[in-house]
Simulated assay, not measured.
Amino acid sequence: MSDFPGAPTAPSDGRNLPRERPEAGAAANGPLRVLAAMSGGVDSAVAAARAAEAGHEVTGVHLALSANPQSFRTGARGCCTIEDSRDARRAADVIGIPFYVWDLAERFREDVIDDFVAEYAAGRTPNPCLRCNEKIKFAALLDKAIALGFDAVCTGHYARIVDLPGGGRELHRAVDPAKDQSYVLGVLDTDQLAHSMFPLGDTTKDAIREEAERRGLAVAKKPDSHDICFIADGDTQGFLARHLGEATGDILDADGTKLGEHDGAYGFTIGQRKGLRIGRPAADGKPRYVLDISPVNNTVTVGPAEGLDVLGLTAIRPRWCGTPAVGEGRYTAQLRAHGEEVPVTATLDGEELRVRLDTPARGIAPGQAVVLYDGTRVVGSATISATERRGVPA
């Protein structure tokens, strides 16, 4: 693991670095010093290649996020193995750019893994990819990059940045709706957006793979990573059980009748249907779903599908990608990473965002993020703290 020879000394995890940053201009303002985050996948490799081809001075960096990385990936899951690091290095060699590995495993554990476990223990449903973007790639990594004299961080996210004629930048959806990742980038603030570069936002995934082949990148056909990168086997419940231990509790009907027992409320998510281990069927014969998770009394409440309908929500800790929302406004909102947009009325009251949905949405839980859009433009993001639902108040 090494830093750049002769570079200014900086803390290894990127904390406590200067916040003053020179404005990073668009490509038209001249070449930039760009730090390209290279995961070892095809997207980040092509993003780095495009940045270099555009004339920028690019350096590749792979983030070592696991304290004990596996040698090889398990199927298509994960993105933090030794194999991924080697793939990133080979891609950097083909592109012809310097390459380094930065150890951010401790910071990742504190800000992403520990947060993930704590949120589930509190009965909430976190999005670790969103937290990683906020705390690692566009906080720890970007802060360290700026301290070392870089102008911008380049990633393989599918999103677009629009430079405004009068100055400033906007974050927009990618042209490929199937790959759009603007939802998990909604946590970026104006300052971070000013130093970000997303070269893939105008291209489809199929075209990216074809381009990788033309460029001679060996990762052209490498499978995408899926699920949660630090749970390589995909067994989230098993991962949580190892960290939180077994905690037997009751599974209740909406009227409080005990239907069964569970080994830990953290093993359930709002809207879950399978694996409930309920001893008897509902009186109406219809499926039952998880409606509520209470860590206080360690209970899981189940009921009919209509009990999942969310009519409104309250969200906290808003982060704005540009001009903050003021008062009441009409937007569309995305409530899950792969969810559809829904029309909403959003009202900002201090640091609390209240959102009223035009039509009910199902399976929305505290801990998830609500991201507001104005057309394709990302307005901002906030963390859902409570929902207003039919049947079970949260």
Rank of each mutant, 00 (worst) to 15 (best):
S381Q: 11
D103F: 10
G339T: 05
G6Y: 03
D284A: 00
T301N: 09
I136G: 08
A47N: 05
R280M: 06
G271D: 04
V101D: 15
A52E: 03
P324Y: 14
F230A: 06
L335G: 01
Q272L: 02
I146M: 06
D191K: 08
K286H: 10
Y373M: 01
G279S: 08
G78K: 02
R288W: 09
N68G: 06
T125W: 08
Q334A: 04
I293D: 02
A159S: 15
A152G: 02
V371H: 03
R377L: 11
L353Y: 02
V300T: 01
C80S: 15
I161W: 02
G6Q: 08
T383K: 10
I251F: 01
P11A: 14
T236H: 09
S381R: 12
D3M: 07
L104E: 06
S39N: 00
T236I: 15
L148W: 11
G40K: 01
R15G: 09
G322F: 01
L252F: 05
R15T: 11
P128E: 13
D151K: 10
S39E: 00
V300G: 00
Y120M: 07
D115M: 12
Q237W: 12
E134P: 04
G264S: 14
P18H: 04
G234M: 07
P5F: 02
L372E: 00
R73H: 13
P366R: 15
A382W: 10
D191E: 15
H338M: 07
P98V: 13
S85H: 14
G285S: 14
A212R: 04
G75F: 07
I228H: 03
G375H: 00
G96R: 07
A159H: 04
A325M: 14
S385H: 09
E213H: 15
G156Q: 09
T347M: 12
A386M: 14
L313V: 08
Y158V: 15
L313A: 04
P8Q: 07
R277N: 09
R273W: 11
G149P: 06
S85Q: 15
V46M: 05
V153H: 12
L308W: 00
G60K: 09
G168F: 12
L164H: 13
S66R: 14
T269I: 13
E211P: 04
P128D: 11
R280W: 07
V219R: 01
D84F: 03
A265V: 12
G60V: 04
H157W: 07
P18D: 10
L348G: 02
Y289M: 08
V153N: 13
D227Y: 12
H195Q: 09
V117Y: 01
T376M: 11
E351N: 15
A159M: 14
V117K: 08
V187P: 03
G166P: 02
E340V: 14
L188T: 04
L17D: 05
H56R: 02
A220G: 09
V379L: 14
Q70H: 13
F4M: 12
T299E: 03
A67C: 06
R77W: 14
G78L: 05
L104M: 13
I95H: 11
F99T: 08
